[in-house]
Design a protein around this nucleic acid. Structure first.
Lengths: 264, 264
DNA sequence: ATCGCATGTTCAATATATCGAACACTAATT
DNA sequence: AATTAGTGTTCGATATATTGAACATGCGAT
């Protein structure tokens, strides 16, 4: 006598969970591991896995019997990004910003409780950020995350935090709500957010908000570099370029800058 | 009395088919359209769609009720590409090649009957190729496709062609097997393949094979541009740079060039 | 405004996927 | 070499998703 409408498609849920689990493991996963991890009877897992393989969403390694994500997943990625016009608008501006700063440039939007990268522009050279289009980041520990949630209603922020918590990523991570709220206040007045090794040791990032024609937050532009690249000397120039770029994107989206005490 | 093992998970198959269908439509798809297109009873589709939405693989537009692919799909993309070491090796070389030629550079591998882009490096500027990492291309109409299938056993090629046919993409598309075989012979002797508006009017591409340490075809590097960019005058320089780059990648994969009549 | 048409959701019977046990197989251990 | 532990697959009973019909809702046309 459990509630009837619990989940109308257990196998689909499981299939998706399997895809996620396998995608996280670079070396793939075996049937047994999957069924243990996800608490699926191995016989059931076996059937689902074969279906996923038949549809080419998973590939099975002959030798080890392990499953890996197939390339078919990628053909879906286009659909996920199409319709995000911020992305198209922002790309050339991000390129310019990358060239100006020689830093990795990201565009992120809020999706559920996470900040998700929807575009990435890398500088030439050997320093690589371990990020990719589609990567999800916690909002409390990243510059783009802060830039995004600094401009949403507090009630939505609280839902996000209660859902995903404030994991301590490094020693510098902000892990309490009062501190984060204070930080977000600063983000709003300054017009940009900083992540000073709060998500990854050795990485320092800055992020600025992008608004749409209705004045709502739409995305955030971010610059990421090592602590050497983004240091007290270079910071001012970097932040200026970043804010410029973010403003530029906002304007192209139809955003009209709010009245400031500029023209005295 | 149908064979029992026909398909052990119809709902999973359907869910995947739905994802694919929705991903192809930039404006999303409604329940009714989906059930018509995929011949799924609308009630069944309704349940599956709600499951996909609950797992954030699809988002439902409040206003229209249409479903679009969610960003969660993207988090899986990483897993699909990890483990492809060609990609890592090739990227810097592709960057260099792009700068040298100012053309869009692709890396593609054979996956089932298709050539799939697994890396893309774009030149600055306004000309954009409608391609993306994950995009699947027919082998008979693209330069990377030809470069790939020119170095597989003929029996495998025949399986590919019987599976996916030789669709006439433009007036110049090669649509018969004898002609393709002759073309592939040329690809092998020349060391590169050409797509002269065979896939898209106005686009001319060249592709060269990448071999691994066992001497097997592993990937193909491609350069794509407009017919103006890739013309008889520029062709020689472009092909030289391309072949150089492909050789370079092969060597980094441990490929030792086969004995040629070089040292007389 | 009223009518038709199309859409999405709910329900209960039925066709179907699911799961534990048993099996076959491999790899590592004694 | 024999034993053990682990893996993946098959099978049939059973619990479950599926489906057509019915219902409710929204939209455009007359």
């Amino acid at each position: 006598m459990t509630s009837r409408t619990e989940s109308p498609s257990v196998s689909v849920e499981r299939a998706l969970a399997i895809l996620e689990a396998v995608a996280q493991e670079p070396d793939g996963l075996s049937n047994a591991t999957i069924s243990r991890k996800l608490q699926i009877p191995k016989s059931s897992a076996s059937y689902i896995l074969r279906t996923l393989e038949a549809q080419h969403y998973l590939n099975r390694e002959e030798a080890t019997g392990r499953y890996r994500v197939g390339l078919k997943i990628l053909s879906l990625s286009r659909g996920a990004l199409s319709g995000l016009d911020v992305r198209e608008v922002a790309l050339p501006i991000m390129r310019h910003l990358m060239e100006k700063t020689s830093l990795t440039c990201h565009l992120a939007i809020l999706d559920g409780p996470d900040a998700v990268y929807i575009e990435k522009v890398e500088p030439p050279g050997f320093i690589r950020m371990d990020t990719w289009v589609g990567r999800r980041m916690r909002v409390h520990a990243t510059s783009v995350g802060k830039a995004l949630v600094a401009h949403i209603p507090q009630e939505r922020l609280e839902r996000i935090l209660s859902e995903s918590g404030m994991e301590k990523r490094t020693a510098k991570t902000i892990t309490t709500q009062p501190k984060l709220l204070k930080e977000l206040e600063k983000v709003r007045t300054q017009g940009y957010a900083v992540d000073d090794e709060e998500n990854n040791i050795g990485a320092r990032c800055v992020g600025a908000p992008v608004f749409n024609q209705h004045g709502q937050i739409e995305a955030a532009v971010g610059l990421s570099g090592t602590v050497n690249q983004v240091n007290p000397q270079t910071m001012a120039r970097i932040v200026d370029a970043l804010k410029d770029a973010a403003r530029h994107v906002s304007m192209q989206l139809g955003y009209r800058a709010p009245r400031r005490n500029v023209s005295g």
